[in-house]
Design a protein around this nucleic acid. Structure first.
Length: 861
DNA sequence: ATACATACC
DNA sequence: TACTGGTATGTAT
């Protein structure tokens, strides 16, 4: 913004147009003569190669802003109102994920490196000091910050700002030591805390607060004083309902302070409303300027206000992020420890064109990188060369190798080729990075993300079928070209992995100084990543029934890690119309059907992973989708489930891997009630809701009387209802599904799973009880979401259960619509969605609720 | 898959 | 004497 506005008068004060990050409001920067700092930075920088490059980048940024501004100006009001509908819908969905039940604490050590240096050399106390050198400063203490000296500032500029500045070289060994001391304290409050870096961490203190009956603020006080007594270092803390907010909060009363944001929606909204967007992690200098200058978005509140612009001009994921920021939402769960995705090494030197010199620098870096990889026990197959030219332009060149490697010879060989192609060039930095590690399981994380995105976005795009601006195809797994490409890759990478693992043992016998434990290191690595596989972990979590049985994938030091994880087979259309997984033929014009179809395969795969029998994926799905062999084809999985789980899977075809947010029915209802009237798309509601219909809380109250503990969780259009025994906490039933548009019927409540434990199935009374209640919550949820119809498929897997199921659903109020046998063309839609044959049963939601109202309202009295 | 940009500490 | 190094991720092609 500075540049935009000051461009009018920068002839008199040219430094004002030099857009540096060094004058951003930052802790310890209050009372700094910003203009002086800006002037000095400018004086020392102007005309330099660095400066010129900054100007170049700034020009590009302004073009970007201009372009975005133009695009926003060209949007018609009908465009905007369409996007507003998208925004309204997303607000609804995002709001439903709000979780105010967790308490997150973000700790941030104050001027960490500098404070550690002062600790080991107390004579530095009270004097302006910076950790780093004349070329770059890592951290400055608060005395130095008074002069405008700060992290990421070159030392020679800092010295100009503060001639008495003391420079202390960085010493990571020291910082790591103190970091570990602090982390020991963190562990007492959250053993699973998330380390952001050496000097900061996120702690989920929900449990500590509850157990000890203390507030977040009290815990923060105690933690900070404990950190101080253990390390002699001060830190600041922020406490809030999610990590994003906690991080913002920890910065507010820095240094040696804390800020607590109450877990209350209106408090959060007030807090967020005036918050400058730059305070949000992930929004940096460029994004700030783009949003501000092109769209006039300054505060987080503006993100919601101008949501339609955001969805019109940015990718959906970006717009979603911005919108959720505007709503004060952030991560509330503890993610699985993530494994690194790349390793790199780079060095700056005085710029040179000398090829011999450059090659020798390259060799040094290759050597260092290789050493680091060996230390970490990593092998990778993508090599990226990074060059910073004498003019500060960054170039990167990458190759993917046929084999995984960590050897300096391999790295150097390929890096040299890459460098050679760039010569002649004057270079001031060379870097090498290796990525695409051989950790096979790594694939499941991104794919899981893709699935979630895919499904959510598919739904999103359906709301805009007439709107070409939203490109649904790029999110669609049936995107032939790209998918077949990555299919190949997965195949080869699997083979290569085997090769590598076999060859690795050989190569270790080869003189190489690889420590003998390296193989071990890598093997240890793999189960670790395994634990990080949300697929497996989450299933356990969601399926208490299975915890006693099956192979415990996550704990074992498995002797055959490779065979456990077959590569994921992405779906693509052979010759443009034939599914590579099951052979079903669907012309490209069947866009929606194709989406459903890939949907099914993904769900199927996840389901198989859950059961641990991934090998049955294809045959099972094939048989099902082709409608052959019916009962005889009974998948192994189903038998396992019945035997091991002691559950009866009625319909089980939806991914369980989505991270749902826990909400009680009341919270759910609250969330829905928070939506402004114009956002309420429910046709039922617009007609006025008859008093006689049981409300969510009616159902809940009634269920409590029957010793049932009901919960509904949602993620966007998806939902999950669980019913537990209020005494034992054991799950006795659940329903899962999605609110989705159905061919020509508007929104329907699509029940993908209703599962009751076997115990429940045996006792007819309980079946009706649990099933009715679980169903009622789901149905009421559908009603609240504007669905008129609920539909399900009682899958024909066994005669015994099938007839029982149909009877059960009939008693609940569903009606048999038709038998989906797979023999009729008309069955296709159902088979594509459910991936099986059975009895399609529908119910009118309004009628259901009316019919049930007696039950729930009566037991209320 | 690759190139480049952005962000964070 | 002249503006880091390591990692992750988003966007475009």
């Amino acid at each position: 913004m500075d540049n935009g506005e000051s461009s009018t008068n920068n002839s008199s004060r040219p430094w004002e147009s030099y857009n540096t990050v060094f004058t951003n409001a930052k802790a310890g920067m209050e009372g700094v003569d910003k203009e002086k700092v800006q002037r000095i930075v400018y004086e020392l920088s102007k005309g330099s190669k660095y400066f010129q490059n900054e100007e170049r980048k700034e020009t590009l940024m302004k073009q970007k802003i201009e372009h975005m501004h133009d695009r926003s100006a060209k949007l018609s009001s009908s465009d905007l109102s369409n996007y507003q509908k998208v925004v309204d819908r997303r607000i609804l969905e995002l709001e439903a994920t709000r979780d105010l039940s967790r308490i997150w604490l973000h700790v941030d050590m104050d001027a960490f490196y500098a404070a550690v240096e002062t600790l080991s050399n107390p004579s530095l106390g009270g004097k302006p000091m910076a950790v780093g050198g004349l070329s770059m400063i890592s951290t400055a203490n608060y005395e130095a910050r008074k002069f405008g000296v700060r992290a990421a500032m070159p030392g020679f500029i800092a010295r100009k700002l503060c001639p008495d500045l003391i420079f202390v070289p960085v010493d990571f060994t020291k910082y790591t030591h103190y970091s570990e001391l602090a982390r020991k304290v963190f562990r007492n409050y959250d053993p699973q805390f998330i380390a952001g870096s050496l000097d900061e961490a996120y702690l989920d203190i929900t449990e500590v607060c509850r157990e000890r009956g203390l507030s977040g603020g009290e815990i923060a006080e105690e933690l900070r004083s404990s950190v101080y007594s253990e390390t002699g270092l001060t830190c600041s803390a922020g406490v809030a309902a999610n990590r994003l907010l906690a991080k913002v909060c920890s910065d507010i009363n820095k240094p040696n302070g804390q800020f607590i944001l109450q877990n209350d929606r209106s408090t959060v909204m007030t807090f967020i409303s005036s918050l400058p967007i730059r305070k949000i992690g992930g929004i940096g200098k460029v994004t700030e300027h783009i949003l501000k200058d092109a769209l006039g978005i300054k505060t987080c509140e503006d993100m919601v206000q101008k949501g339609s612009l955001l969805y019109a001009l940015f990718s959906q994921s970006s717009a979603d992020f911005f919108l959720s920021v505007g709503l004060g939402l952030g991560e509330t769960d503890t993610p699985q420890a993530r494994s690194r995705k790349s390793i790199s090494c780079e060095r700056t030197f005085s710029a040179t064109e000398d090829e011999k010199l450059l090659y020798s620098k390259l060799a040094e870096i290759a050597e260092m990188l290789s050493d680091d990889m060996k230390k970490e026990g990593l092998i990778a197959r993508t090599l990226t060369l990074k060059l910073k030219t004498a003019t500060f332009e960054i170039r990167s060149r990458a190759v993917s190798l046929k084999r995984y490697t960590c050897s300096s010879e391999d790295i150097l060989k390929h890096a040299t080729k890459l460098l050679k192609a760039e010569l002649p060039v004057s270079v001031r930095l060379i870097g090498l990075r290796m990525s695409q590690f051989s950790d096979e399981i790594r694939h499941s994380d991104p794919s899981q993300e893709t699935i979630t995105k895919f499904i959510v976005q598919k739904d999103f795009s359906r709301q805009n079928l007439d709107d070409n601006k939203i490109d649904a195809s790029k999110n669609c797994l049936s995107n032939d070209e790209s998918m077949s490409l990555s299919f190949d890759t997965h195949e080869t990478s699997y083979d290569q992995l085997k090769d590598v693992l076999e060859n690795e043992e050989q190569s270790q016998l080869d003189a190489n100084k690889v420590p003998p434990n390296q193989e071990c290191t890598r093997k240890e690595e793999r189960p670790q990543v395994l634990e990080g596989d949300a697929l497996l972990i989450k299933h356990k979590e969601y399926k208490p029934d299975t915890s006693h049985s099956m192979n415990d994938n996550s704990s074992a030091q498995n002797s055959e890690p490779v065979t456990l994880f077959l590569p994921i087979e992405p779906l693509f259309w052979i010759d443009g119309y034939k599914c590579n997984l099951c052979g079903i033929e669907l012309p490209p014009s069947f866009v929606e059907e194709r989406q459903e179809h890939s949907d099914f395969h993904l769900a199927q795969r996840l389901q198989n992973e859950e059961s641990g029998s991934s090998s049955s994926t294809t045959p099972t799905s094939k048989r099902r989708i082709l409608g052959k062999e019916k009962a005889n084809s009974k998948p192994k999985k189903q038998k396992q489930s019945e035997k091991d789980d002691a559950t009866c899977h009625l319909v089980l075809y939806y991914p369980h891997t989505i991270s749902f947010q826990e909400r009680t029915p009341e919270e759910m209802k609250m969330a829905l009630n928070l939506i402004p009237p114009k956002l309420n798309l429910s046709p039922s509601n617009s007609l006025g809701e008859p008093k006689s219909l049981p409300s969510m809380s009616d159902i809940l109250t009634s269920s409590r009387a029957r010793n049932l503990d009901l919960k509904i969780q949602t993620l966007g259009p998806f939902f999950r209802v669980t019913g537990k025994n209020a005494d034992t906490g054991g799950e006795i039933g659940r329903a899962e599904g999605v609110v989705r548009p159905w061919f020509g019927q508007g929104l329907v409540l699509h029940l993908d799973t209703i599962r009751l434990t076997k115990e429940t199935m045996k006792m007819d009374k309980s079946v009706l009880g649990v099933g009715l209640y679980v169903g009622a919550v789901a149905i009421r949820h559908g009603y609240d979401c504007g669905c008129r119809t609920a539909q399900l498929l009682a899958i024909y897997d066994s005669d015994l259960y099938h007839s029982k199921l149909v009877r059960f659903y009939r008693r609940i109020g569903f009606e048999e619509v038709k038998e989906v046998s797979g023999s009729l063309i008309g069955d296709m839609a159902d088979m594509l969605v459910w991936g099986g044959v059975g009895t399609r049963m529908d119910a009118n939601i309004h009628h259901l609720l009316l019919k049930w109202s007696k039950v729930f309202l009566k037991s209320n009295v």
